[in-house]
Design a protein around this nucleic acid. Sequence first.
DNA 1: ACCTGAACACCGTTCAAGT
DNA 2: ACCTGAACACCGTTCAAGT
Lengths: 229, 229
Amino acid sequence: MPEPEPRVPLTRDRVLHAAVALADNQGLGSVTMRRLAEAVGAEAMSLYYHVANKEDVLDGLTTVIAREINDTVDKLDLPAHGANWKNAVRHRILSAREVLLRHPWAPSVFETRTTTSPEVLKYYDGLLALMRAGGFSYDLAHHALHALGSRALGFTQELFDPSTGPTTPEETAAILANLADNLPHLAAMMADIVHNDPTSTLGWCDDKAEFEFGLDLILNGLDGLRDSF
Amino acid sequence: MPEPEPRVPLTRDRVLHAAVALADNQGLGSVTMRRLAEAVGAEAMSLYYHVANKEDVLDGLTTVIAREINDTVDKLDLPAHGANWKNAVRHRILSAREVLLRHPWAPSVFETRTTTSPEVLKYYDGLLALMRAGGFSYDLAHHALHALGSRALGFTQELFDPSTGPTTPEETAAILANLADNLPHLAAMMADIVHNDPTSTLGWCDDKAEFEFGLDLILNGLDGLRDSF
DNA sequence: ACCTGAACACCGTTCAAGT
DNA sequence: ACCTGAACACCGTTCAAGT
């Protein structure tokens, strides 16, 4: 019996959860209709009975992840009235981020969706509730959602890629030397960071600390606008 | 003579500029090796002589666009010393954004790169120069780049998609009614925005105003940290 | 040095056919 | 109602062959 449970019938839900598992284990690139069918013990064409097409699978992926986020943040229940709004929003967003860390492929799926899953809207509705409790006007809350952008869901678009940086000090030194000619400020900045923290590798940054820095910058700015906007 | 200039020999540069034109006119999805070859009057396989593979084409795309951005912002030459840093950075970023508006496909290409083009690094180096002139420590400047994220280059990841919203007031009303049950705050926010600005369509937002709101929030926050970080 | 034709291993998707 | 086999129109890419 090589096939795992060939009896249990196919379901949209079973297809989507298999897709999440596939993406978690093998990466998003391996989520093809054919391989997804294989993972679920069926032929590629059988999927189309439960799912409109591949776009629908990707939409479903965001719904599953957003539901996981909502299940997590709904348990928080922090006080949000008045000045507490900031702490409540902060924890909500950092909790969402922890879910996404378990599904590293998820941000790129969220980014490519052209339609917003109701489950994501529900997440936003919860965020809005916290801001309203903090005294935000709807207008300010609206601006806030835009200002947070993908950060509201717990991820940011980093344009340096840390993972491609060099690893040995020799490589680091060589790169800094090359940089110094054409990119003096970048070279100086990296040299300075290496100096301050010799254990840091060039190009590597503490993602969590950077995420929180940017998040707090925005939240503090919004806090200052609460009464006047 | 149906072919346009079959004489002029193929070049990496000619390939990349043809790819930009193709993406501009037909969308990023139509940038395939086969169609790109056709646009340039050759066979698909000829491209591989000037370009490593498709990833290389996409990397090249970001280089071309980043160069266009650099050509634009290098002309600005605004004073950046002291408190002027903010205005200089602001204009630099808004100018970058205007270039990207001419190439709406570019953000999604930047997002998928795993390596950073030297031309992009040059752009960052210029940003760093302005911050340094404003009195930033390297440490703060580093945090600032992370906090700005893709906004430094002039784009943000919006998670609502405005373009898929309804267009008629009737549809708007219907959607708001449905929303009100499960998403009370979202519904109220949208109703409020519609009320404040009857010409606005549900889901449509002034991208430029929202971009500037978020940008200013971050820049103002950074300004407050200039002397203490 | 530069370009190409034929071929390979993949995609997503349709459609008629099976149970 | 649910699943499938064969087929179609595409991909990116290799490789031996042309000039």
